[in-house]
Simulated scan of single mutants.
Amino acid sequence: MTDSKEIKLYATHPHPCSYFGDREAKTIFIDPEMTPSAALYSELSRRGFRRSGNHIYRPDCKRCKDCIASRVPVNLFTPTRGQRRTIKRNADLNTKILSSPSDQSYSLYERYINGRHRDGDMFPPSKEQFDSFLGPSNAASEYVHFYLGADLVAVAVTDVLDDGLSAIYTFYDPQFSQRSLGVYGILWQISQAKSRNLSYIYLGYWIRDCQKMTYKTDYRPIELLINSRWVRLI
């Protein structure tokens, strides 16, 4: 196994920030020619790295530290009243865990981006974008398909780490927005991690002043990686 101290890191040039229109961002990522072991990928996740496609990266903005890695210790998690309602609301869904996206996945993703994220940098959606972002990768990924009867209504992409699950992305049919399927996808992964005796769900970056990213602290307790230490918020 390659030691984390031996990894080659590369940095992007400054580029427009995806979260704040008046800021520039900079990202570091591991050597794209390298295929990290499951243990190394897990260690990088504990150090605040995330995966997008086959790239494992971390923000490295000198003037801004607002992107803070987050994870939920699943054995301590207690759902709120609203989260319990979401679980009950979706009790009629059937679940299949696949090793790659089903043939229906892209059309669902396309409807999701068109219906929910027309103002984001993932619009307009394309099959090439979908494949590079969410298609099969070097990671041990699972594609959790949620069905209402025969209809695919949501997909949660999750990576299996040695100490938890990393919630990469969830997309769903916008016509079922009242079901809170994004919330349900996270709650399902928390339950799944518990059943596998894993300790955490890694939720990606919490950004206090970005409305789209503040939802992560709805899952309590949560741990934030601050100054290289995981700090627990109750």
Rank of each mutant, 00 (worst) to 15 (best):
G204N: 07
D162K: 03
Y112A: 05
Y57N: 01
A156W: 09
S199E: 13
D103T: 14
L233W: 09
T27H: 00
P32A: 12
H117P: 14
R116G: 12
R111M: 12
E223Y: 15
D31G: 07
S107G: 06
T12D: 02
R232K: 13
Y205R: 07
V183N: 07
Y147L: 08
L9T: 01
Q129H: 10
G21T: 13
I68D: 08
D151S: 14
C210H: 14
Y19P: 12
D60R: 00
D162H: 07
N75Q: 10
L224C: 09
N138R: 04
G164H: 02
L108E: 00
Y10L: 08
I28Q: 11
R50T: 13
L152C: 11
G48P: 01
A11D: 03
Q175N: 12
I87A: 11
S107C: 11
R47G: 03
S42K: 02
L93Q: 04
I113P: 12
P36E: 14
R46D: 15
P174G: 10
Y147I: 09
S141C: 10
S52Q: 10
D60V: 00
G185E: 05
G115S: 08
V144P: 05
D163R: 01
S132N: 09
F123N: 03
D163W: 00
D162S: 07
V160E: 08
R208Q: 15
V183K: 14
E43W: 05
E128V: 05
N138T: 03
I97K: 15
H15D: 11
G82N: 12
Q211I: 09
V72R: 07
R208T: 15
S37V: 02
H55M: 15
K62R: 13
S137L: 04
T80E: 15
A156E: 14
L165A: 06
V72N: 06
N227I: 01
E110T: 06
L187T: 10
Q178H: 08
D218I: 05
A91I: 13
I186G: 00
T35F: 09
K62H: 10
E43C: 11
S37P: 14
N54P: 03
G164L: 03
D31S: 09
D209G: 02
D66E: 13
S18T: 13
K65P: 05
V183A: 07
K8H: 10
R111I: 01
Y143F: 10
V231G: 00
A39P: 00
P174N: 09
G115M: 08
A69Y: 03
P124E: 06
I30G: 02
Y109M: 05
S45D: 00
A154M: 13
L40S: 01
P36F: 10
G185Y: 05
F146S: 02
Q83R: 07
I56N: 01
I87L: 14
L152W: 08
S228F: 04
L224D: 02
S132K: 13
H55I: 15
L187G: 06
G115H: 09
D66I: 03
P14W: 12
D121N: 10
C210L: 05
T2A: 09
W206I: 06
K5V: 06
Q175C: 11
S180A: 11
I226C: 01
L233S: 03
F123T: 01
T95I: 14
P79F: 11
F146A: 03
